[in-house]
């Protein structure tokens, strides 16, 4: 069982991710944007992060970049889960040391197997 921080500004997406991860036996912490996610990261020290890219206040890439500077985020697996597919964004994701790039719609089985593999 892992502690997963799931970050998405879409309520329905947060609910679906939480449902999928809880069914897989994991503890889930939710955040609505990068600012809240940084706060949750410091508070709960998750084992893995799954974050959306496009979000208000702080997007997923800026969040990962900031999280890598935190002691809790230095070597944490952090996956982007997004509708975006542009190579320029993927390059930026590598540059901020994201662990991987998942495109929506997500497959619950795939998410659970990645959490098992990485967390």
């Amino acid at each position: 069982m892992s502690v997963v921080l799931a970050v998405d500004d879409t309520r329905a997406l947060r609910a679906m991710l939480a449902d999928c991860l809880k069914k897989g036996g994991h503890d889930v912490i939710l955040a609505v944007d990068g600012v809240e996610a940084l706060d949750q990261l410091r508070k709960h020290k998750p084992d893995i992060v799954i974050t959306d890219l496009n979000m208000p206040r702080m997007n997923g890439l800026d969040f990962i970049e900031a999280a890598r500077r935190e002691p809790e985020g230095k070597s944490l697996p952090m996956l982007l889960l997004t509708t975006e597919t542009a190579q320029s964004l993927k390059d930026r994701a590598r540059a901020v040391r994201a662990t991987g790039w998942l495109t929506k719609p997500f497959d619950p089985k795939q998410i659970l197997s990645l959490v098992d593999q990485l967390a």
Binding site: K90, A93, T99, W101, L102, T103, K104, P105, D107, L114
Partner: peptide, 8 residues
């Protein structure tokens, strides 16, 4: 339809 996975 499911999304793709790319690990860096």
């Amino acid at each position: 339809t499911t999304g793709s996975v790319e690990l860096f």
